[in-house]
Computed example of a mutant assay.
Amino acid sequence: MKIAIFTDTFYPDINGVARTLKQLTNYFDEQKIAYKIFAPDSYSNEYISSHIHRFKSLPFFIYPECRLAFPNLLDIKSELQDFSPDLIHVATPFTIGLCGIYFAKKLNIPLVGSYHTNFDHYLQFYDLPFLSKIVWKYMHWFHRPCKKLFVPSIETFQQLTQHGFTNLEIWPRGVDCQLFHPNYDQEAVQRLYCAQRNFLLTYVGRLAPEKDIETLLAVAKSMPGELNEKIQWLIIGDGPLRDKLEAQAPENITFTGYLNGKCLAEIYSASDLFVFPSPTETFGNVALEALASGTPVIGANSGGVKNIIKSGVTGLLCPPGNVQEFTAAIIQLLNNLPLRKQMAIAGRIYALTQRWDRIFENLIWQYTEVIEEQKEQKYA
């Protein structure tokens, strides 16, 4: 099997799409499945691979981590003909994705797509709700040629079904439970970040409007005084709102910038709670990483996160943007150590069932089904 992936973001970009696709190509390497990635150039040139063909690009104004590339169609056609893929997988709906759809049709190559980002929900956070109908029409047009459209969660599946999408398949996300686990030296992390405080509360993600960090800041400011003195917040990530948020944040909030690997895993493990107010997630990888680390999650009852967190068992779900509910949930769990420990165990047990290899095995089966179906039509 030979797979060509067309995407407008790829490793070392820091976002859910890039990380998922890197996990997928790691699996391809392990299984000796041939692949070719067509992607924009990165803000960093630290990752070089013979499997990747990169193109000059500029940041997308709404979502700078996704880049608008300027692909050379002759180069793409030449590479595709040399590589002769059995299937094209289009992961993003921008310029590189459009090239994937064009060449799938032109060269008669089976085509599948994946839906990673809820751009329609993003619009309200950028004061662009009037573009909603246009966005949905474009998404319909873009994904119509796909034999299968993979979505990351039941919530996203239901949302797209309501908007008239067909051929949907759930392709969930996994977690590396060998990297993310509860057995790190938690006291060392707490000494480094907590100083004299009792509790470490963490957020991981992009610092952008669609993540609703404003609610997180309001929650931090609304904690009761006596409890607030015992809390240290860590905000891990970067983005367009960082300067504004740092200027408004109380003194017990520390902004670390982007962290990854073992450093990030250690902080998850040492945290008492993971607080994630984003209402726009199609999945919510960071919530699953927190559970794998034995950290209960307090999240927005919206998007893919509501399919990860079992409220009352592995964490608590709150109405999106409801400062009072988030505050009450944090107080409840910080004052109940036995319940936090119970949730930590339940979260880890759940995360252990979300294995990447099993998830990718199912994806390959779906690929095979599409390839075989086109062969049958060709020889019918």
Rank of each mutant, 00 (worst) to 15 (best):
I3V: 14
F6P: 01
D8G: 10
N26Q: 09
F28I: 05
Q31P: 02
I33T: 09
Y35W: 11
P40Q: 09
S44I: 13
S50K: 13
H51K: 03
K77R: 13
Q81S: 08
D82E: 05
L87Q: 09
P93L: 13
F94K: 08
F94H: 10
F119K: 12
D120N: 14
F125E: 08
Y126P: 08
L131T: 10
L131I: 14
L131H: 10
V135E: 08
W141Y: 15
H143E: 13
R144A: 15
C146I: 13
V151Q: 08
V151E: 08
P152C: 03
I154F: 10
Q162M: 09
F165Q: 05
G174Y: 11
D176G: 02
H181N: 00
D185L: 11
C194P: 00
F199C: 00
Y203D: 01
L216I: 12
L217D: 06
G225S: 05
G225N: 01
E229H: 12
K230A: 00
K230V: 00
L234G: 03
L241K: 14
A247R: 11
T254M: 01
G261A: 02
L264D: 04
A270T: 02
V275L: 06
T280I: 12
N285E: 00
N285Y: 02
L288T: 06
A290M: 06
S302T: 12
G312F: 12
L316A: 08
T327A: 09
A329L: 05
L333G: 02
K341W: 07
T353E: 04
F360Q: 00
N362T: 13
L363P: 01
W365A: 13
T368Q: 14
